[in-house]
Every structure is written in structure tokens, then in C-alpha cells.
């Protein structure tokens, strides 16, 4: 090796040795402001939650959360850097700081919360695991699927739930695990498995859009697991954790208070102190989070309240037509409940 080579080598070593000093130099909020964008990890494609259209635009519930964060923190919902992540990569991407928030239909579980260096912030969708079978199947309930072959997509909590459920029944199943969503679907619809299992939110759309004849398939009534989905952030930055958490709460609170994308500006002069507080015309709720007064107003104007986000991406305004179900407000018999914004 010549002198230049040695120089290169020692420079590399020096850089490597010095890098620890640069670590954790800035908190996430400072970094986001400095770079002028929120790095958001989303799924590579799940109808209703995140997906790219033919023009390359992102849409979906998960992506709207990120837009809301960008609007609240940076004042522009477009300042999001999208990172489509597969299920293996999502946690490392968050751990390594490649994304600031992981909004990727990820189930909140103890193991993930406690041992993977991340914190779930709030729940944006209450899901559960369901089953779909062909109509002429011998099974009319999940319990009758013992010893059946069931198509699953890998890298999700689905595999473990499946096993837990049938073990509790004292039965066995044979999972056929696919890495890719499309391969698992193709296998099921060509008759490879006797049942297909995934989150209920996807089952309906899969049946309606994917099945050669949607009428030939039925979704079994049982839901075998709780799948609370929500955005997660890296551990060790309480400030950013609070911002993401309260952004979700603010969107839910906005629905409860009747604040929508359209009337948000006009409601600033509402006599209701709760509305004033949320929209920044009363007490300054943003200061405590390290943001300005109108953080929630901007987010609501950008993506609408939680109800509007739901209807646009998953509900009546979308091609999926899912009912609100558990995701209705607590005042309407659902589970969506935000702690008071005050």
C-alpha cells in the first residue's frame, strides 16, 4: 500500500473513532426542524393505510398521521420524507434513526414496547385477526379449522396469534408462511390453503378486490386477537414522543369537539374553551410540547379530524367501505378516546 492508501486508512479510522461524539447531538424535534422534514416509515402498500397511486402520491390512514405531524411541527403537510419499509426492516429503521416516526400498521405489544428500543405513542386503529374461507368450505367457524392449512404473511404478529389460538383449543394448524402479500393471496385464491388469515381491516378489501369471484368467499365471524395499531417513536426522546402522542389525541379530540377541516378556522372564535385551547385561540397548549399555539389547527386543516381521516381512507369515502366499529368515538360506542387536551 502506498502513502495515500495509509492516509485514507487512518482518516477512515479517525472518522470512525470520532463518530460516537456526534451521536445523540440533537433531539428529534431539532433535527426535524433543521432538515425541514419528518422522516416517516410506512408500509410498502396496504390499501387504506398507506399506498402510492399511479401518480406516485401517498395516501392512507398511516400516511395522514405523518402529514399531520409535519403540519403541526413544520407548518407544511407536504414536508414528509416517505420511507416504505418491509416488516423485517421497520424496527431497525426506527432504531437506527432512519425514520423519526414509524406509522406502519404496527401492533402494539409488550415485547415490542419493552425490548426493541421504541415506544408506541397512541392507537390510531383497533384491529383484530380474522379468517376468510371459501364458501363451500366445511368450516363455518374458526374452531373447525383444526389441522387445516392456513395462508399467512410472514413478519407479523399474525403467525403467533394463530398458534396461540389453536393451542388454547388443543388443536394444531399448518401455517403456510409467505414473505410477500401478493404471493400469500395468490396461494389462497388458487386453493392452496383452506383459510386465509390477516387483520380484519384487510380481509374485506382482499375479498372484494382480489378474489376472482368475491361471492365465493366468506369471512368467519370470530376475531381471535387484539391488534391495536399506532405510530411508534424511538426511545430516549420524551419531547418527540409527547408530540406524536398528542397529535393523535388532538385529531381524536377534534372529532369529538366537532372541529373539521372545513370549519377549523371559523371555530377559532368559538365560545367553547376546549375548542379554543385546541385551536390555539385560548390557552397556549403548544408551548408545553415545544411547538407554537396553532400546532393542532394546522394539523386539522391539513388532514381533517380522526373521523374525516377514517372515512376518507377506510370508510364510506374510500373503496374499502369499512364500518367504524371499534374505531368510533367512545361517545358513540367505540374505543377512540383522547385524554383531555388542557
Amino acid at each position: 500500500m502506498n502513502i495515500a492508501g495509509w492516509k485514507c486508512c487512518s482518516a477512515l479510522i479517525a472518522v470512525l473513532a470520532l463518530t460516537p461524539l456526534a451521536a445523540h447531538a440533537g433531539k428529534t424535534l431539532d433535527l426535524v426542524r433543521q432538515q425541514g422534514r419528518v422522516a416517516c416509515g410506512v408500509s410498502t402498500g396496504l390499501a387504506g393505510f398507506s399506498g402510492v397511486d399511479s401518480k406516485g402520491n401517498w395516501s392512507g390512514l398511516d400516511t395522514d398521521i405523518c402529514r399531520g405531524i409535519a403540519a403541526a411541527v413544520l407548518g407544511d403537510p407536504g414536508k414528509v420524507k416517505w420511507l416504505p419499509l418491509n416488516s423485517q426492516q421497520r424496527f431497525t429503521a426506527l432504531q437506527a434513526g432512519e425514520v423519526d416516526v414509524l406509522s406502519r400498521n404496527t401492533t402494539w405489544t409488550l415485547t415490542r414496547d419493552a425490548s426493541m428500543g421504541l415506544h408506541f405513542t397512541a392507537i390510531t386503529y383497533y384491529d383484530g385477526q380474522g379468517f376468510m374461507v371459501p364458501k363451500q368450505s366445511k368450516a363455518s367457524s374458526v374452531k373447525q379449522l383444526r389441522n387445516a392449512e392456513i395462508c399467512v404473511q410472514s413478519g407479523t404478529t399474525t403467525e403467533k396469534n394463530l398458534n396461540d389460538y389453536f393451542r388454547a383449543q388443543g388443536a394444531k394448524v399448518r401455517p403456510v408462511v409467505f414473505e410477500s402479500f401478493e404471493a400469500s393471496l395468490k396461494a389462497f385464491f388458487s386453493g392452496r390453503c383452506q383459510a386465509y388469515t390477516t387483520d380484519v381491516s384487510s380481509l374485506v378489501s382482499i375479498r372484494d378486490k382480489e378474489a376472482p369471484k368475491p361471492g365465493d368467499y366468506v369471512i368467519l365471524p370470530e376475531v381471535i386477537s387484539k391488534e391495536p395499531l399506532g405510530p411508534a417513536v424511538r426511545r430516549g426522546d420524551d419531547e418527540w414522543f409527547a408530540i406524536v402522542k398528542w397529535l393523535v389525541f388532538a385529531l381524536i379530540e377534534a372529532e369529538e369537539l366537532g372541529i373539521t377541516q372545513a370549519n377549523a378556522d371559523s371555530l377559532r372564535s368559538s365560545p367553547n374553551p376546549a375548542v379554543q385551547r385546541l385551536l390555539g385561540s385560548g390557552d397556549d397548549s403548544g408551548r408545553l410540547l415545544g411547538l407554537d399555539r396553532e400546532w393542532a389547527l394546522r394539523a386539522i386543516k391539513a388532514v381533517g379530524n380522526y373521523g374525516e381521516i377514517f372515512e376518507r381512507n377506510l370508510g364510506s369515502g374510500s373503496s374499502l367501505k369499512l364500518p367504524r366499529g371499534s374505531n368510533a368515538l367512545w361517545t358513540k360506542g367505540g374505543l377512540m378516546y383522547a385524554p383531555p387536551v388542557r
Binding site: 431497525t92 415485547t111 428500543g117 413478519g155 408462511v177 414473505e179 404471493a183
Partner: peptide, 23 residues
């Protein structure tokens, strides 16, 4: 193999990686 749903070593490692997070 994991692309076509055969449980080979990579498939098992993938699932374990996902459940334990120990990449």
C-alpha cells in the same frame, strides 16, 4: 425460499427476527 412460502432457514430467521427484534 421465503418468496414462495417454504420454511427454510431464512424464513425462520425472518420470523424470529421479527418476534424478538434481535437482528
Amino acid at each position: 425460499a421465503v418468496a414462495v412460502g417454504y420454511p427454510d432457514l431464512v424464513s425462520i430467521a425472518n420470523t424470529s427476527l421479527n418476534q424478538t427484534g434481535q437482528a
